[in-house]
Simulated assay, not measured.
Amino acid sequence: MPLTTLLGTQLPLIQSPMAGAQGSAMAVAVSNAGGLGSLPAAMLSLDALREELEKIRAQTSRPYNVNFFCHTQPQPDPAREAAWHATLAPYYQELGVDPAQIVAGPGRAAFNAAAADLLQEFRPPVVSFHFGLPAPELLTQVRSWGAKVLVSATTVEEALWLEARGVDAVIAQGLEAGGHRGHFLSHDLTRQMGTFALLPQIVRAVRIPVIAAGGIADAHGVAAAMALGAAGVQAGTAYMLCDEATTSALHRAALQSPAARHTALTSLFTGRPARGISNRLMRELGPLNANAPAFPLATAAIAPLRAKAESQHSGDFSPLWSGQNASACQALPAAEVTRLLAQGF
């Protein structure tokens, strides 16, 4: 089945959900332009999620996607938290931050029954998940209103695992992709592959549609993915400078600078590997630091450093998420970016 038939869209193009860099405006713009706009829900409270879904419902009749994380919330480890605070202590002193004022928080919310109940009121046509699948009863609830289910796979094994559990399509997330890695069967990063190595292997291994993601920022990349058997493409970094994006001024400047040529997977900002533009904190502590608490608990201790530095116009302590190919990232309306990407189909 063609991806456009499965999703009900004009184009086999999905706008990657980018938590912290977009809201409903981006999703609406892409859906109205013929692609599948996505709303990231991992950083939204239930009230905020309802508000965003109401905006989407009011502004488009086209299909759209709502994305959730499926991680297991870890138990806080006091020893590891202490080690993390000790690692960051010199920066607290430098920036005049009182570590006693740090407020613990979840950072990212996993899909749960309350979110499923809220979602059922709006019945989005597509629901996608990162870090595997939710509990079977929650997945059954999502399917109850006919939603199509898309999930990220970073290895062939993950794609096979997802196909066996009945997902409608897999998103082959290559190593180039910006933001959090979607791996869930293994945390061994040596098992991760680039998009154009991973994509054809997953295409050969499964019978469901495969969507290519990672490093695809222009029509040439889209065409290359389709030539390797992709049913469609998911693009994220290409949309980060759009008018509808909520990307900060610091982040926008970094994406348009030579610094964007150097990205790395880092666990410093959330506790889980995610690709972002290399900055001072990543260089000085190493992008993957063993002292960082498990995802998403690392966020709380970094937050006051980020806030203080950003108030001084510095991105030294900010997660500057980006894929490895920001070269085609343009400050254009999302509909125009969608049109440019669509030239590759």
Rank of each mutant, 00 (worst) to 15 (best):
E81A: 10
Q324G: 15
S61N: 12
A27W: 05
S16K: 01
A217S: 13
P12N: 08
A213T: 07
D77F: 08
V203R: 06
M26A: 05
A48K: 05
P200K: 03
P124G: 08
Q192F: 14
Q234E: 15
A116H: 06
R339L: 14
P273G: 07
A264Q: 08
V151D: 04
T9S: 07
E176I: 14
A328G: 05
C329S: 08
E51L: 13
A303G: 10
P106I: 10
G271L: 04
F68N: 03
N65Y: 06
R57D: 14
R272S: 15
L341Y: 01
E81Y: 10
G8W: 01
T5A: 15
Q324T: 08
L133Y: 00
I211Q: 01
A41E: 05
P125C: 13
A100G: 14
G323L: 12
G232T: 02
V66G: 11
P304H: 00
G23T: 07
A29R: 00
F196L: 14
L297S: 03
E310H: 00
L44K: 06
T72A: 12
A19G: 01
A230G: 12
A307F: 04
H187D: 15
S24A: 15
S45C: 14
D98R: 07
P74M: 05
T270D: 11
R62E: 15
E121V: 07
F317N: 03
S318V: 08
L39G: 08
G236V: 04
V170N: 08
R80N: 07
V233A: 08
P293N: 06
F317E: 03
P125G: 08
R306P: 10
R272W: 11
A83D: 11
W321M: 13
A164F: 08
Y91V: 06
L133T: 03
L198M: 11
C70D: 05
I216N: 04
G194D: 13
M1P: 11
R62A: 15
F345Q: 03
Q141F: 10
I211R: 00
R272D: 14
G315L: 10
K55W: 10
Q101V: 07
M18E: 07
I102T: 07
T338L: 09
W84N: 07
P296K: 05
